[in-house]
Simulated assay, not measured.
Amino acid sequence: MDILGWALIVLLFAIGMAGAVYPILPGALAIYAAFFVYGFFFSFGEFGIWFWLIQTIIVIVLFIADYAVSAWGVKRFGGSKASIVGSTIGIIIGPFVIPAFGLIIGPFAGAVIGEMIAGSNMEKSLKVGVGSVVGLFTSVVVKVILQLIMIALFVLWLVF
């Protein structure tokens, strides 16, 4: 049972880290779920209130940062609410429409289309599209760092 428990924990950590890049996967929630798997298979005794409080705060920050950083990229490059919505839609459906490159093309195209619908010219719309990709990459970096911190805290909590 120990092997199954650790295999599930590692699998959830891997899904969580993949979710930092691929938005359809649960990301931080998978990592958070791994803590419960550890508790059910081994013991919740190692985790006190501070562990759960810190991890929950990180998850909340991840959710807020994910949207805020992506929106920041669009706004920073002069985008409107329509381009933020378009970019968000693009990041969700892009990977399904164009599996290999949809993660980048989706938010870019969504932001460009959203900005065009808002009445901007092609030059500004393309600039906003670039901003959506910058926001996406920045968001991925933030998510990877925070999720690695979650995993590192888990390990440190078990060791110390």
Rank of each mutant, 00 (worst) to 15 (best):
F63P: 00
F63K: 04
F63T: 12
I64T: 05
I64K: 05
D66I: 06
D66W: 01
Y67C: 02
A68K: 13
A68Q: 12
V69F: 11
S70A: 15
A71V: 09
W72P: 08
W72E: 10
G73N: 07
G73D: 07
V74E: 11
V74G: 08
V74M: 00
V74D: 06
K75G: 10
K75P: 09
R76L: 12
R76F: 07
F77E: 06
F77Q: 11
G78W: 09
G79M: 06
S80Q: 06
K81S: 14
K81L: 13
K81H: 09
A82K: 13
A82M: 11
S83L: 05
S83I: 05
I84W: 03
V85L: 14
V85M: 09
G86I: 08
S87K: 00
I89M: 08
I89F: 13
G90F: 03
I91Y: 08
I91V: 14
I92F: 13
I93C: 06
P95N: 05
P95Q: 01
F96Y: 13
V97S: 02
V97F: 02
I98N: 00
I98L: 13
P99T: 04
P99W: 00
F101K: 06
F101P: 03
G102Y: 00
G102W: 00
I104T: 08
I104M: 09
I105V: 15
I105S: 02
I105C: 02
I105N: 01
G106K: 02
G106H: 05
G106I: 06
P107A: 00
A109T: 08
A109N: 00
G110P: 09
V112E: 05
I113M: 08
E115W: 05
M116F: 10
I117R: 03
I117G: 09
A118F: 07
A118S: 14
G119T: 07
S120W: 08
S120G: 03
N121S: 11
M122E: 11
M122K: 12
K124P: 04
K124N: 09
L126E: 02
L126K: 01
L126I: 15
K127E: 15
G129V: 07
G129I: 08
G129P: 09
G129W: 04
V130M: 11
V133D: 02
V134H: 03
G135P: 05
G135Y: 03
L136V: 04
L136A: 04
F137G: 09
T138Y: 04
T138M: 13
S139I: 07
V140L: 11
V141A: 15
V141M: 14
V141P: 07
K143H: 10
V144W: 11
I145T: 14
L146N: 10
L146G: 12
L146C: 09
Q147L: 03
L148P: 03
L148T: 11
I149E: 06
I149G: 06
I149T: 10
M150Y: 05
M150K: 02
A152G: 04
A152R: 01
L153K: 00
F154L: 08
V155N: 06
V155L: 15
V155Y: 12
V155Q: 06
L156M: 14
W157S: 14
L158W: 14
L158E: 08
